[in-house]
Amino acid sequence: MHRFIRLQRRSRPRPFWLTLGAGVLLGAVGRLPAQRPVPAPNAAPPPTALGTPAVELPDAPDAGTVGGEVTDIDGALIPNAKVTLINARTGETHTESVTDQAGAYRFERVPAGTYRVHISAKGFSPWKVKDFDVAPQQAVILERVELGVEEITTAVTAITVEDLAEQQITNEEHQRILGVLPNFFVSYEKHPMPLTRKQKFKLAAVVSVDPVTFFTTGVTAGIEQANNNFSGYGQGMGGYGQRYAATYGDKLSATFLGAAFFPSLFHQDPRYFYLGHGNVVHRALYAISTTVMCKGDNGHWQPNFSNVLGNIGSAEISTLYYPATSQQSAQVRLTNSIIGIGEGAIGTLFQEFILRHVTSGGIAKQKP
Protein backbone atom coordinates (compact mmCIF):
# COMPACT_ATOMS: atom_id res chain seq x y z
CA MET A 1 0.00 0.00 0.00
CA HIS A 2 2.90 2.27 0.78
CA ARG A 3 4.75 1.51 -2.53
CA PHE A 4 1.68 2.20 -4.52
CA ILE A 5 1.33 5.60 -2.99
CA ARG A 6 4.91 6.52 -3.87
CA LEU A 7 4.52 5.48 -7.47
CA GLN A 8 1.40 7.58 -7.72
CA ARG A 9 3.38 10.55 -6.46
CA ARG A 10 6.12 10.15 -9.11
CA SER A 11 3.64 10.11 -11.90
CA ARG A 12 2.01 13.31 -10.70
CA PRO A 13 2.28 16.19 -13.27
CA ARG A 14 4.90 18.90 -12.70
CA PRO A 15 3.73 22.39 -11.84
CA PHE A 16 3.55 24.89 -14.73
CA TRP A 17 5.97 27.36 -13.20
CA LEU A 18 8.72 24.68 -12.99
CA THR A 19 8.45 23.79 -16.67
CA LEU A 20 8.56 27.42 -17.74
CA GLY A 21 11.70 28.14 -15.68
CA ALA A 22 13.57 25.20 -17.15
CA GLY A 23 12.87 26.42 -20.74
CA VAL A 24 14.13 29.92 -20.02
CA LEU A 25 17.32 28.50 -18.53
CA LEU A 26 18.03 26.30 -21.55
CA GLY A 27 17.51 29.21 -23.96
CA ALA A 28 20.00 31.36 -22.12
CA VAL A 29 22.62 28.65 -22.19
CA GLY A 30 22.20 28.25 -25.98
CA ARG A 31 22.97 31.96 -26.50
CA LEU A 32 26.39 31.81 -24.71
CA PRO A 33 29.47 32.45 -27.07
CA ALA A 34 31.46 29.36 -28.12
CA GLN A 35 34.94 29.07 -26.62
CA ARG A 36 37.95 28.78 -28.99
CA PRO A 37 40.05 25.62 -28.68
CA VAL A 38 43.30 26.03 -26.79
CA PRO A 39 46.33 24.93 -28.85
CA ALA A 40 48.07 21.81 -27.68
CA PRO A 41 51.13 22.64 -25.62
CA ASN A 42 53.36 20.33 -27.64
CA ALA A 43 52.37 21.46 -31.19
CA ALA A 44 55.54 21.79 -33.37
CA PRO A 45 56.13 25.08 -35.21
CA PRO A 46 57.32 24.96 -38.85
CA PRO A 47 60.99 24.22 -39.53
CA THR A 48 63.39 27.14 -39.39
CA ALA A 49 66.96 27.82 -40.46
CA LEU A 50 70.07 26.28 -38.95
CA GLY A 51 70.32 27.12 -35.26
CA THR A 52 66.59 27.38 -34.39
CA PRO A 53 65.41 26.33 -30.94
CA ALA A 54 64.48 22.75 -30.40
CA VAL A 55 60.92 21.71 -31.13
CA GLU A 56 59.14 18.50 -30.29
CA LEU A 57 58.64 16.07 -33.19
CA PRO A 58 55.68 13.72 -32.82
CA ASP A 59 56.57 10.10 -32.23
CA ALA A 60 60.32 10.91 -32.20
CA PRO A 61 61.06 12.92 -29.04
CA ASP A 62 64.88 12.46 -29.31
CA ALA A 63 65.35 13.00 -33.09
CA GLY A 64 65.45 15.93 -35.48
CA THR A 65 65.17 16.50 -39.23
CA VAL A 66 67.57 17.91 -41.84
CA GLY A 67 66.49 19.32 -45.19
CA GLY A 68 67.52 21.65 -47.98
CA GLU A 69 67.52 22.38 -51.69
CA VAL A 70 70.02 21.84 -54.52
CA THR A 71 70.30 24.00 -57.66
CA ASP A 72 72.95 24.93 -60.20
CA ILE A 73 74.66 28.32 -60.24
CA ASP A 74 71.87 29.68 -62.45
CA GLY A 75 69.20 28.67 -59.96
CA ALA A 76 67.86 25.70 -61.93
CA LEU A 77 66.68 22.84 -59.73
CA ILE A 78 68.73 19.66 -59.80
CA PRO A 79 66.69 16.47 -59.29
CA ASN A 80 68.23 13.07 -58.52
CA ALA A 81 71.30 14.57 -56.87
CA LYS A 82 72.82 12.17 -54.35
CA VAL A 83 72.76 13.57 -50.81
CA THR A 84 74.69 11.82 -48.05
CA LEU A 85 74.31 12.64 -44.36
CA ILE A 86 77.60 11.90 -42.58
CA ASN A 87 78.33 11.77 -38.86
CA ALA A 88 81.03 14.42 -38.46
CA ARG A 89 82.53 12.81 -35.38
CA THR A 90 82.92 9.27 -36.71
CA GLY A 91 83.04 9.97 -40.45
CA GLU A 92 80.48 7.23 -41.05
CA THR A 93 77.57 7.60 -43.42
CA HIS A 94 74.35 7.96 -41.50
CA THR A 95 71.97 7.79 -44.42
CA GLU A 96 71.65 8.64 -48.11
CA SER A 97 68.91 10.11 -50.24
CA VAL A 98 68.31 11.84 -53.59
CA THR A 99 66.68 15.14 -54.37
CA ASP A 100 63.14 15.13 -55.71
CA GLN A 101 61.93 16.85 -58.86
CA ALA A 102 61.94 20.16 -56.99
CA GLY A 103 65.59 19.70 -56.04
CA ALA A 104 64.72 19.23 -52.37
CA TYR A 105 65.89 16.61 -49.88
CA ARG A 106 64.92 15.75 -46.29
CA PHE A 107 66.21 13.37 -43.65
CA GLU A 108 63.74 12.30 -40.95
CA ARG A 109 64.44 11.00 -37.44
CA VAL A 110 68.05 12.17 -37.28
CA PRO A 111 69.58 11.47 -33.84
CA ALA A 112 71.08 14.42 -32.03
CA GLY A 113 74.71 15.00 -32.98
CA THR A 114 77.10 16.78 -35.34
CA TYR A 115 76.74 16.10 -39.06
CA ARG A 116 77.92 17.18 -42.49
CA VAL A 117 76.25 16.75 -45.87
CA HIS A 118 77.92 15.64 -49.09
CA ILE A 119 76.10 16.34 -52.37
CA SER A 120 77.00 15.06 -55.82
CA ALA A 121 75.26 15.08 -59.19
CA LYS A 122 76.27 13.96 -62.67
CA GLY A 123 77.94 16.76 -64.58
CA PHE A 124 78.51 18.90 -61.47
CA SER A 125 81.32 19.33 -58.99
CA PRO A 126 80.69 17.66 -55.60
CA TRP A 127 79.83 19.85 -52.64
CA LYS A 128 80.31 19.48 -48.90
CA VAL A 129 78.24 21.34 -46.32
CA LYS A 130 80.29 22.27 -43.27
CA ASP A 131 79.58 20.61 -39.90
CA PHE A 132 76.37 21.52 -38.14
CA ASP A 133 74.58 20.32 -35.00
CA VAL A 134 71.20 18.66 -34.74
CA ALA A 135 69.57 18.85 -31.31
CA PRO A 136 66.71 16.66 -30.10
CA GLN A 137 63.38 17.69 -31.58
CA GLN A 138 65.07 20.23 -33.91
CA ALA A 139 64.26 20.78 -37.58
CA VAL A 140 67.34 22.08 -39.46
CA ILE A 141 67.05 23.64 -42.91
CA LEU A 142 70.41 24.08 -44.63
CA GLU A 143 71.17 26.94 -46.98
CA ARG A 144 70.58 26.30 -50.66
CA VAL A 145 73.49 24.48 -52.31
CA GLU A 146 74.49 25.71 -55.77
CA LEU A 147 76.54 23.14 -57.67
CA GLY A 148 79.08 24.33 -60.21
CA VAL A 149 79.98 22.62 -63.46
CA GLU A 150 82.15 19.58 -62.95
CA GLU A 151 85.85 20.19 -63.46
CA ILE A 152 87.06 18.14 -66.40
CA THR A 153 90.56 16.75 -66.18
CA THR A 154 92.16 15.76 -69.46
CA ALA A 155 95.51 14.33 -70.27
CA VAL A 156 97.90 16.94 -71.61
CA THR A 157 100.06 15.78 -74.49
CA ALA A 158 103.20 17.76 -75.13
CA ILE A 159 103.52 18.97 -78.71
CA THR A 160 106.79 20.15 -80.18
CA VAL A 161 107.56 22.81 -82.78
CA GLU A 162 108.35 19.98 -85.19
CA ASP A 163 104.91 18.49 -84.58
CA LEU A 164 103.23 21.82 -85.31
CA ALA A 165 105.30 22.25 -88.47
CA GLU A 166 104.30 18.75 -89.59
CA GLN A 167 100.63 19.64 -89.17
CA GLN A 168 101.11 22.81 -91.19
CA ILE A 169 102.92 21.21 -94.12
CA THR A 170 100.33 18.43 -94.13
CA ASN A 171 97.76 21.15 -94.78
CA GLU A 172 99.99 22.68 -97.44
CA GLU A 173 100.24 19.35 -99.25
CA HIS A 174 96.50 19.56 -99.89
CA GLN A 175 96.60 23.04 -101.42
CA ARG A 176 95.82 22.99 -105.14
CA ILE A 177 95.17 25.77 -107.62
CA LEU A 178 91.70 25.28 -109.11
CA GLY A 179 91.72 21.99 -107.23
CA VAL A 180 94.38 20.57 -109.62
CA LEU A 181 97.80 22.27 -109.71
CA PRO A 182 100.04 21.79 -106.65
CA ASN A 183 100.50 24.90 -104.51
CA PHE A 184 102.50 23.28 -101.72
CA PHE A 185 105.27 25.83 -101.12
CA VAL A 186 102.95 28.57 -99.84
CA SER A 187 102.03 29.13 -96.20
CA TYR A 188 98.81 30.89 -95.24
CA GLU A 189 99.41 30.35 -91.53
CA LYS A 190 99.44 33.39 -89.25
CA HIS A 191 102.13 31.76 -87.12
CA PRO A 192 104.12 29.39 -89.37
CA MET A 193 106.55 27.02 -87.71
CA PRO A 194 110.09 26.53 -89.10
CA LEU A 195 110.72 23.31 -91.00
CA THR A 196 113.29 20.70 -90.11
CA ARG A 197 115.78 19.45 -92.70
CA LYS A 198 113.72 16.29 -93.09
CA GLN A 199 110.51 18.25 -93.66
CA LYS A 200 112.14 20.43 -96.34
CA PHE A 201 113.25 17.39 -98.33
CA LYS A 202 109.87 15.74 -97.76
CA LEU A 203 108.01 18.74 -99.20
CA ALA A 204 110.35 18.83 -102.20
CA ALA A 205 109.78 15.13 -102.83
CA VAL A 206 105.99 15.47 -102.60
CA VAL A 207 106.01 18.17 -105.27
CA SER A 208 108.43 16.27 -107.52
CA VAL A 209 106.40 13.06 -107.66
CA ASP A 210 102.97 14.66 -107.87
CA PRO A 211 101.04 13.35 -110.92
CA VAL A 212 100.37 16.91 -112.06
CA THR A 213 104.12 17.57 -112.18
CA PHE A 214 104.59 14.68 -114.61
CA PHE A 215 101.65 15.88 -116.69
CA THR A 216 102.84 19.51 -116.98
CA THR A 217 106.33 18.25 -117.81
CA GLY A 218 104.87 16.31 -120.72
CA VAL A 219 102.97 19.37 -121.98
CA THR A 220 106.14 21.51 -121.85
CA ALA A 221 108.16 18.87 -123.69
CA GLY A 222 105.45 18.66 -126.37
CA ILE A 223 105.51 22.43 -126.93
CA GLU A 224 109.31 22.42 -127.18
CA GLN A 225 109.21 19.62 -129.74
CA ALA A 226 106.52 21.39 -131.77
CA ASN A 227 108.70 24.51 -131.84
CA ASN A 228 111.80 22.37 -132.44
CA ASN A 229 113.52 23.86 -129.41
CA PHE A 230 116.84 22.19 -128.61
CA SER A 231 117.00 20.78 -132.14
CA GLY A 232 119.89 18.56 -131.13
CA TYR A 233 117.38 16.23 -129.55
CA GLY A 234 115.77 15.60 -132.94
CA GLN A 235 112.16 14.67 -133.55
CA GLY A 236 110.03 11.59 -133.04
CA MET A 237 109.56 9.70 -129.79
CA GLY A 238 113.29 9.78 -129.09
CA GLY A 239 113.44 13.54 -129.32
CA TYR A 240 110.28 13.93 -127.21
CA GLY A 241 111.66 11.57 -124.56
CA GLN A 242 114.90 13.59 -124.28
CA ARG A 243 113.01 16.85 -124.03
CA TYR A 244 110.72 15.33 -121.38
CA ALA A 245 113.73 14.13 -119.34
CA ALA A 246 115.46 17.51 -119.67
CA THR A 247 112.37 19.43 -118.59
CA TYR A 248 111.77 17.14 -115.63
CA GLY A 249 115.46 17.38 -114.72
CA ASP A 250 115.19 21.17 -114.60
CA LYS A 251 112.21 20.97 -112.23
CA LEU A 252 113.81 18.30 -110.08
CA SER A 253 117.13 20.08 -109.65
CA ALA A 254 115.52 23.48 -109.06
CA THR A 255 113.15 22.04 -106.46
CA PHE A 256 115.67 20.01 -104.48
CA LEU A 257 118.45 22.61 -104.67
CA GLY A 258 116.32 25.72 -104.06
CA ALA A 259 113.75 24.22 -101.66
CA ALA A 260 115.64 21.50 -99.78
CA PHE A 261 119.43 21.37 -100.08
CA PHE A 262 120.38 25.05 -99.80
CA PRO A 263 117.56 25.90 -97.31
CA SER A 264 118.87 23.12 -95.07
CA LEU A 265 122.46 24.37 -95.50
CA PHE A 266 121.63 28.03 -94.75
CA HIS A 267 118.76 27.33 -92.31
CA GLN A 268 116.24 29.16 -94.45
CA ASP A 269 112.58 28.51 -95.17
CA PRO A 270 111.80 27.76 -98.86
CA ARG A 271 108.11 28.68 -98.65
CA TYR A 272 106.34 31.85 -99.69
CA PHE A 273 104.54 33.46 -96.72
CA TYR A 274 101.32 35.07 -97.83
CA LEU A 275 100.97 38.68 -96.64
CA GLY A 276 97.38 39.47 -97.57
CA HIS A 277 97.15 42.98 -96.12
CA GLY A 278 98.36 46.48 -96.93
CA ASN A 279 98.09 48.49 -100.13
CA VAL A 280 98.85 47.08 -103.57
CA VAL A 281 102.32 48.63 -103.86
CA HIS A 282 103.38 47.37 -100.46
CA ARG A 283 102.19 43.85 -101.20
CA ALA A 284 103.77 43.84 -104.67
CA LEU A 285 107.16 44.96 -103.35
CA TYR A 286 106.93 42.37 -100.61
CA ALA A 287 106.16 39.59 -103.11
CA ILE A 288 109.01 40.51 -105.47
CA SER A 289 111.51 40.93 -102.64
CA THR A 290 111.01 37.34 -101.52
CA THR A 291 113.02 36.16 -104.54
CA VAL A 292 116.12 37.71 -102.95
CA MET A 293 115.00 37.85 -99.29
CA CYS A 294 113.55 35.03 -97.23
CA LYS A 295 112.65 34.13 -93.69
CA GLY A 296 115.24 32.14 -91.78
CA ASP A 297 114.48 29.22 -89.49
CA ASN A 298 115.07 31.68 -86.64
CA GLY A 299 112.14 33.81 -87.86
CA HIS A 300 114.30 36.71 -89.13
CA TRP A 301 114.45 37.96 -92.71
CA GLN A 302 117.78 37.47 -94.50
CA PRO A 303 119.24 37.30 -98.04
CA ASN A 304 117.68 34.46 -99.98
CA PHE A 305 120.85 32.52 -100.77
CA SER A 306 118.78 29.38 -101.25
CA ASN A 307 116.73 30.70 -104.15
CA VAL A 308 119.61 32.41 -105.97
CA LEU A 309 122.06 29.52 -105.61
CA GLY A 310 119.30 27.03 -106.35
CA ASN A 311 118.64 28.66 -109.73
CA ILE A 312 122.35 28.91 -110.56
CA GLY A 313 122.94 25.33 -109.50
CA SER A 314 120.00 24.06 -111.52
CA ALA A 315 121.29 25.97 -114.59
CA GLU A 316 124.75 24.42 -114.17
CA ILE A 317 123.29 20.94 -113.96
CA SER A 318 121.16 21.52 -117.04
CA THR A 319 124.30 21.83 -119.17
CA LEU A 320 124.90 18.14 -118.56
CA TYR A 321 121.90 17.02 -120.60
CA TYR A 322 121.06 19.89 -122.99
CA PRO A 323 122.62 19.58 -126.46
CA ALA A 324 124.96 22.55 -126.81
CA THR A 325 128.50 23.65 -127.70
CA SER A 326 130.70 25.23 -125.06
CA GLN A 327 129.36 28.67 -126.00
CA GLN A 328 125.79 27.43 -125.88
CA SER A 329 126.46 25.88 -122.45
CA ALA A 330 127.42 29.24 -120.98
CA GLN A 331 124.42 30.82 -122.60
CA VAL A 332 122.10 28.15 -121.24
CA ARG A 333 123.48 28.58 -117.72
CA LEU A 334 123.01 32.34 -117.75
CA THR A 335 119.61 32.18 -119.41
CA ASN A 336 118.28 29.51 -117.07
CA SER A 337 119.47 31.42 -114.00
CA ILE A 338 117.81 34.64 -115.09
CA ILE A 339 114.67 32.80 -116.12
CA GLY A 340 114.51 31.01 -112.79
CA ILE A 341 114.71 34.22 -110.75
CA GLY A 342 112.30 36.04 -113.09
CA GLU A 343 109.79 33.24 -112.94
CA GLY A 344 110.06 33.29 -109.17
CA ALA A 345 109.17 37.00 -109.01
CA ILE A 346 106.19 36.53 -111.31
CA GLY A 347 105.11 33.51 -109.30
CA THR A 348 105.17 35.41 -105.98
CA LEU A 349 103.06 38.21 -107.47
CA PHE A 350 100.50 35.65 -108.55
CA GLN A 351 100.63 34.07 -105.10
CA GLU A 352 100.00 37.37 -103.34
CA PHE A 353 97.15 38.69 -105.48
CA ILE A 354 95.47 35.82 -107.33
CA LEU A 355 96.26 32.27 -106.35
CA ARG A 356 94.96 32.51 -102.79
CA HIS A 357 91.47 33.03 -104.18
CA VAL A 358 91.61 29.99 -106.47
CA THR A 359 93.45 27.62 -104.13
CA SER A 360 91.48 24.93 -102.33
CA GLY A 361 92.46 22.54 -99.56
CA GLY A 362 94.39 23.12 -96.34
CA ILE A 363 93.64 26.47 -94.69
CA ALA A 364 93.70 28.27 -98.05
CA LYS A 365 89.93 27.79 -98.24
CA GLN A 366 89.52 29.96 -95.15
CA LYS A 367 89.04 33.68 -95.59
CA PRO A 368 92.28 35.67 -95.36
Rank of each mutant, 00 (worst) to 15 (best):
T160C: 09
A221T: 05
P39Y: 05
K190D: 15
N229V: 13
I86T: 06
T196L: 12
A158F: 14
G67L: 03
S306D: 07
L77G: 02
T160I: 10
I288G: 05
G75E: 07
F4M: 10
L275W: 05
G234T: 08
V134I: 09
L32P: 04
V292I: 12
N227H: 14
A165Y: 06
L334N: 12
T335N: 15
P192W: 09
E316R: 05
T95R: 14
E352P: 04
G340H: 00
G64N: 00
D74R: 07
D163P: 01
P13G: 03
G362F: 00
Y233D: 05
P263H: 12
A260K: 03
R6L: 15
L252S: 02
G258D: 04
K367T: 08
R14G: 08
Q351E: 15
F132E: 03
L355S: 02
H267A: 13
P182M: 07
V280T: 12
G75F: 03
A104M: 09
V129A: 13
E173R: 08
V134T: 02
V292M: 11
Q168K: 06
S120D: 13
V308D: 06
L25Y: 11
P211N: 01
R243A: 02
L309Y: 02
V29G: 14
R10E: 11
V110T: 04
S125A: 15
